[in-house]
Design a binder for these strands. Structure first.
Length: 387
DNA sequence: TCGGAAATAT
DNA sequence: GATATTTCCG
């Protein structure tokens, strides 16, 4: 009790070793005396409730903590109630045949009646313990790498190699691994909190999901769409929890940005050339030609879109734009001058590699604008056409 | 599946 | 604020 209490306290020292509720219940099941059991339960309950009060001030920051605590409290209360109930149960029940007595320590003590009751208790606790175990696993929002992770998110990519982009052809750095791959993996595992429906895709998204798209999956979709549809799907959730989870989802649901490294872009351009130019090539074709593991149609499409955009908005008139960098017609991006990607000028297309203009340290670019190439700082900044 | 555009992130 | 990337929409 005091033990548990202490463990649940935030003031634990470095030697603190967490005792799970599972363990607690296990221990509890070994206690024969009902009142002992009840008092222990009460103690831990009190501890949990105290804890709840403590983090109450942080409930916005620690929504999951609140939920976990709450769940624990509810479960223990339940246990407590059962305990009490059993305590006043009619003798009648004590004669119910017991099975699975293994592991019960009802040996000692006296009176047959008491013993029987104990047996039943132990047994009951055993199943309760099991239940609690299940409960514990159900509230465990992390771990177990191998289970529910949305494998489809990977499988539907070209080679299912999503998680390990570095495998890609000899580590040429075709593209940079997602910095937050692992994080994403975990993010996706965040289980829906009972009662929250934010994972339910909106109708629109369902429509899309029903399509045979290979780039995104229902899982990631469901989560990602949650960001945008969350507001409408949160109706039945208490505002506080809602906003917390909404924020959390928003933070974690978005797809990791694809980093178009120079090498990756080069492949893109190569593919483009093989396909006859950006205006005729389709994302799927490009992606297939690029043969980059983990690259999705959407990513290619997006890149292509940008590429086209730049090509388009960089008409020949650009001579007036000075600096001659990236302000050129598509031809000059090497697209029409196939295979000449090593041309003197701007071999990389509208989206010039920074290497052309600032050495070759574009990939580092950890900070700022995320893009791995583009050298946009020096290159053109064509006013947005419209959009 | 695609193109275009809005939304969002950097 | 500009640009890159993701997401949505038709």
């Amino acid at each position: 009790m005091g033990l548990v209490h202490q463990e649940l306290s935030l003031d634990f020292g470095p030697t603190f070793i967490p005792k799970t509720i599972t363990n607690f219940l296990k221990e509890l099941s070994l206690i024969g005396n009902v009142s002992d059991k009840a008092s222990k339960l009460d103690a831990i309950l009190k501890g949990l409730e105290d804890e709840m009060k403590k983090i109450d001030a942080f409930k916005r920051e620690l929504p999951l903590c609140m939920l976990l605590l709450n769940d624990a409290i509810v479960a223990l209360k339940e246990e407590s109630t059962q305990c009490m109930t059993r305590n006043v149960e009619p003798v009648l029940e004590e004669f119910i045949p017991l099975k699975n007595k293994e592991g019960n320590d009802q040996s000692e003590e006296d009176g047959s009646l008491i013993t029987t009751k104990k047996e039943e208790h132990s047994n009951n606790n055993c199943s309760n313990y099991k239940d609690k175990k299940n409960w514990m696993s159900s509230v465990q929002l992390w771990n177990t790498d191998d289970d529910d992770y949305c494998s489809t998110d990977h499988n539907l990519d070209t080679k299912g190699n999503y998680g390990d982009p570095c495998k890609d052809r000899g580590g040429t750095g075709a593209f940079l691994p997602f910095k937050a791959n692992a994080v994403r993996k975990e993010e996706k595992k965040v289980m829906p909190i009972p009662g929250l429906t934010f994972l339910t895709p909106g109708i629109k998204n369902l429509r899309q999901e029903s399509g045979s798209t290979g780039s995104r999956t229902s899982c990631s979709r469901a989560i990602s769409c949650s960001a945008t549809n969350a507001r409408s799907n949160f109706q039945s959730v208490p505002p506080a929890v809602l906003s917390d989870h909404y924020q959390q989802q928003q933070q974690t649901s978005r797809k990791q940005r694809r980093c178009w490294s120079p090498e990756l872009h080069r492949r893109f351009v190569d593919a483009l050339q093989q396909l006859g130019g950006s205006q005729v090539a389709t994302p799927k074709q490009i992606r297939e030609l690029m043969q980059v593991d983990g690259l999705t149609n959407d990513e290619v499409k997006s890149h292509l879109q940008k590429y086209r955009l730049h090509s388009r908005r960089l008409p020949v008139t650009t001579s007036t734009l000075g600096s001659g960098h990236a302000r050129m017609s598509e031809d000059q991006y090497g697209e029409s001058s196939k295979g000449s990607s090593s041309q003197s000028g701007s071999p990389q297309g509208p989206l010039q590699l920074a290497t052309n203009t600032r050495g070759d340290s574009m990939e580092d670019d950890g900070d700022a604008k995320s893009e791995c190439y583009s050298g946009k700082s020096q290159a053109q900044k064509p006013g947005k056409t419209d959009v």
